[in-house]
Nucleic acid binder design. Structure first.
Lengths: 172, 172
DNA sequence: GCCATTTCTTAAGCTATCTTAATTTTTCTT
DNA sequence: AAGAAAAATTAAGATAGCTTAAGAAATGGC
């Protein structure tokens, strides 16, 4: 099967910032090993995690790639990682992609839509505890690998409250 | 420009249910006029609106179309509407689509990803008042057309609280 | 192996948002 | 236009989840 053509890989260290809000040189990243995340910082200075990207995931700011605007998100490395690059143009001009690549891209986009919708439903209708349980079931390996405060940020609660929840859940 | 091939249109009345949870006969809908919505019902019996689909939007349960599972959402008409149908197969087997159609589909999927991510960030980081203001700016026509309680459901708050917010905002 | 840094825990008080319920207003039906 | 149904408002009391702050535990660098 044809596959999206990526640059050769590059090693990045834990904490390295690969994309900042305002950046105009835009790439998406495919994670070969390790784990990246994308996040935003709100008016109150708080971080909110949009996506974790462990091995084999693609991460980037689709909105910016599409319309050419500066990035609205940050991307950094949560672990030592190896990544390859995909140019923004591949998201902007679907016509220029070969059909095979376009099919592959469509599948990734479709999966992204499905995952995003699930998360929206979860944020709209589930309690913090339910969202945490659901996270542990959906991403069991990430629960092991990532610090609690990042998981709290992803499910939309404070680390203190997640710590509380864990204790209450353990008591049952 | 080529366009995804839809069936001829059909009129539906306000309140008509086009898709139910558990349905296995699956179509997505393109709205020619009027407005549809998709929603889920949680354990406590409460509705949560996933999407509004006014003129020219496509609405459906991508997850089910993809893997052939029964629908996980409801879709109904919020107004007298005219819709055309698109078969689930078109989401499932991208290979069989002509390239032009695939490009069009990819663009719709990409826009869907962008919109979904915006909504996730909003749910994670904005207060109810901020989400309401943002909704009125993003969908000014829907604010006119739809009852308050549906907007409340979409932004993830109760109608009573949205009513409160409106009053407080008016006082300023 | 030690010190610094980061992460996690705990707890008390606080606030945004919800629940319930009753009333009013608007919209729909005939 | 009247009556019924749906939507919106208001208000009081409840609660999930937040804030702050301080201490404990774990991790990482040298």
């Amino acid at each position: 099967m044809a596959t999206i053509k990526f640059s050769k890989t590059k090693k990045v260290s834990k904490g390295d910032l690969l994309l900042s809000v305002g950046d105009t040189t835009l790439y998406a990243y495919k994670v070969e090993s390790g784990c990246l995340r994308s996040y935003v910082i709100d008016n109150a200075g708080k971080e909110h995690i949009l996506q974790f990207a462990p091995e084999d995931w693609i991460i980037g700011d689709m909105g910016s790639y599409t319309n050419g605007d500066p990035s609205t998100i940050f991307i950094d490395a949560l672990e030592e990682s190896e990544v390859s690059f995909i140019s923004a143009a591949d998201f902007r001009d679907f016509h220029s992609l070969e059909k095979e690549l376009l099919v592959e891209m469509s599948i990734k986009l479709r999966n992204n839509v499905i995952a995003a919708n699930k998360r929206i439903i979860s944020l709209l209708s589930a309690t913090a505890e339910e969202r945490y349980i659901s996270f542990t079931q959906t991403y069991p390996t990430l629960v092991q690998r990532l610090p609690l405060k990042l998981i709290a940020s992803y499910i939309g609660i404070t680390p203190e409250y997640l710590s509380d929840l864990r204790r209450k859940m353990a008591k049952k």
